[in-house]
Computed example of a mutant assay.
Amino acid sequence: MTHSDTAGSARLLTPADIRRLADRLGVRPTKTLGQNFVIDAGTVRRIVRASGVAADDVVVEVGPGLGSLTLALLPHVRRVTAVEIDRTLAAALPDTVREHAPDLADRLEVVTADAMRVTGIPGPEPTALVANLPYNVAVPVVLHLLELLPSLRRGLVMVQAEVADRLAAGPGSRTYGAPSVKAAWYADVRRAGAIGRNVFWPAPNVDSGLVELRRRPEPATTASRAEVFAVIDAAFAQRRKTLRAALATLAGSAPAAEAALRAAGVAPSIRGEALGVTEFARIAEHLRVPG
C-alpha cells in the first residue's frame, strides 16, 4: 500500500490555528521543554514525505506539541503513538485531531510521558520514529528509543542543525563524536535536509536539520552494548588524548589500555575520532574493565 491507498484526510494547522489553540490552552512555548512549534504546513508535509512512511507503518512521534506533524502523518500511516511530556498538550491532542481529521481519530494514541524514561509503547509494535525533537534532549531520546524499540526500522527526526551534523558525522570529521558512534551502533544515519528558523513559533535562534536513520544489524561482537558505549564515552571524554591515554582509567592503567588496543588491531597512538563503531566494539572485546 502507498500513501494514496489510505482513506481519510486531515486539515493541517495554519499559523492562526496554532496561536488560537495555544491561547485556548493557555500554552506558552517553554525553553525548559525545548518547545518550538512548527507553524508551516509545507514543512510538516516535507517531513512526512522524507520519512518514507507507508500505510502499514506504526509511527512513534515524540513531542507532538499542538499537533502540526501529527495531522500530517495520520492520513499516511496505520497508527501514530504520540509521546508528550506536557500534560496540557497531551490532553488536547485527541480533540485537535477529532476537529481537523475526524475520520482518522482512531489512528491516534497519546502517551503522556517523558520519552527519555518511557519503558514501553502501547499497541502494535512501532516501525518508524518521526518527530520534531526538543533540541535539549534529541540525542538521548533517539538512542533510548532505538534501544527500547528494536521494531523501529527507520526514523526521520528534526533537530538542531549542529546536532544533525553530529549524529550523521563519519570518522575523521570535525563533528564526529560519541553521539555519532552510538547512533551508528543501531542505524545508518545521514543528513536529509535543512530547515530554516521561520517555520517555528517561537523562531529559535539556530537552524534545524533533518536526520534519517535506517536500522541495520548491530555490530557482531562478544562485548555488550554497555561495554562498547563505555569505551566510546572514555575515548571522547578528552578528544585530544590518544586512545592509550583516554582508555587508561577504564582499563586500569595505560599499559593495560595499550595491550587491549594492540590486541584489537588498533594503534594506541591514534584518537577516538579516527575509529568507526566496529573498531570500538573490537576494543571492548579485549578490554577487561577492572572490578
Rank of each mutant, 00 (worst) to 15 (best):
L210D: 01
L129Q: 03
G272D: 01
V59G: 07
A203I: 08
V80L: 11
V62G: 14
A256T: 00
A192N: 14
L71P: 10
L104C: 12
D207W: 00
R78G: 05
S173D: 15
P126G: 11
W201Y: 05
L129T: 10
D86T: 03
D103T: 13
P134S: 04
A260F: 04
A101L: 03
L167W: 10
G272P: 06
N198M: 15
V58H: 14
G193R: 04
S68E: 02
R197L: 04
R79V: 01
A223V: 10
A54M: 06
S180V: 03
D23E: 12
S4N: 06
V181S: 14
Q160M: 09
H76P: 10
E258D: 11
T43M: 06
V44F: 07
G67P: 10
P140V: 12
T278Y: 01
T2C: 15
A234G: 09
G65H: 12
D86W: 03
S9F: 11
I47A: 13
A251V: 14
V231R: 11
A256Q: 14
A115Q: 08
A192H: 13
E84D: 02
E99M: 08
A72I: 10
G120N: 13
G52F: 00
E212D: 13
S4M: 11
S68Q: 08
D95I: 00
T88S: 00
S180G: 07
E212T: 14
E285Q: 00
E162K: 08
S9N: 00
E258S: 11
G209S: 07
L250H: 06
P64H: 02
R191A: 06
R28L: 07
V118L: 14
S224F: 11
D165N: 02
P134L: 00
T14R: 11
V97K: 02
A192Q: 08
R288L: 13
D17E: 00
T6H: 10
T2V: 09
G67A: 11
A259V: 15
R190A: 15
N205W: 05
A187L: 06
P150K: 09
L129F: 04
H144K: 03
R46F: 07
R20C: 14
E99D: 01
A246L: 12
R117T: 11
G172P: 03
V137M: 10
Q160L: 13
V277P: 02
I85Y: 06
R11V: 14
S68T: 04
N205L: 04
A187P: 15
G291C: 11
A128T: 09
H3S: 12
W201V: 02
A187G: 00
V130W: 03
R225W: 05
D233T: 10
I121E: 06
S4C: 02
L129K: 14
